[in-house]
Amino acid sequence: MAEVTTSVWATGQQPSRVQRRGRYVPESMRHPGKMLPSIAARVIETYTGPGELVVDPMCGIGTTLVEAAHLGRHAAGVEYEERWARLAVANLGHARKQGAPGFGRVMAGDSRHIARLLPDLAGRAALVLTSPPYGAATHGHIRSTRDTGEPGVRKWNQRYSHDRANLAHQQLPHLLEGFGRILAGCVELLRPGGVAAITVRPYRVRGELVDLPGHVHRLAEEAGLVFVDRIVCLLCGLGEGRLLNRASFFQLHEARKAWARGTPIHALAHEDLIVFRRLRMAAEADPGHALEGVRELE
Score class of each variant (00 low, 15 high):
V78M: 03
L234T: 14
P26S: 05
F103L: 13
W84R: 09
R206T: 00
L235Q: 15
V228Q: 10
A165K: 15
L127R: 07
E188P: 11
R218I: 02
G288I: 08
S111T: 14
L219T: 12
T5L: 07
R261F: 01
A282G: 13
I198H: 08
N245C: 09
A184R: 12
R143E: 11
T11G: 04
L127F: 09
R295N: 06
Y24H: 12
A85I: 00
R230G: 06
R17A: 11
P173Y: 04
E79T: 15
P32D: 01
A168D: 05
L36N: 15
T48C: 13
E67K: 01
P264A: 04
N91F: 02
A260V: 08
H169W: 14
H169L: 10
L127M: 04
L183G: 04
L244K: 07
G207I: 09
R295K: 09
R105W: 04
D110K: 01
G152P: 11
G207F: 04
L209K: 02
R154T: 14
R30S: 12
E81M: 03
C186M: 06
H266Q: 13
H253P: 01
V210N: 07
R73Y: 03
R112Q: 15
M35V: 14
R86C: 05
G152W: 03
T145G: 04
E292C: 02
G152T: 07
Q19L: 14
P37D: 08
G22S: 11
A2W: 10
E296M: 12
L252M: 09
M35C: 03
V205D: 06
L71S: 14
Q171K: 10
G22Q: 09
A223F: 01
I182Q: 00
H70K: 08
G293T: 12
A196Y: 00
A196T: 13
Q170V: 08
A267E: 15
T11W: 05
N245I: 13
L297F: 04
L244N: 03
T64G: 09
R181I: 00
T5C: 01
R256L: 13
R17V: 13
L212Q: 10
L65I: 07
R246K: 12
H174S: 12
V226C: 06
T64M: 01
R17E: 15
A126Q: 08
R96L: 07
D110R: 01
D147P: 07
A69H: 06
E3V: 14
M35I: 15
F103G: 10
M281Q: 14
S28M: 06
V55E: 02
R242N: 10
D272T: 15
T48H: 07
K155S: 07
R73L: 10
R146D: 14
D272G: 06
E271Q: 12
A95C: 08
E52A: 03
R146W: 11
R246Y: 14
H174M: 14
E254H: 11
F276M: 01
I142P: 04
V18Y: 05
S131Q: 12
W9F: 09
Q19H: 06
Q251V: 00
I114C: 11
C236S: 11
E188S: 10
A220Y: 02
F276A: 00
P264G: 05
A269T: 06
S161R: 06
R96P: 10
I39E: 07
D120A: 09
A126F: 04
H174A: 13
G180M: 00
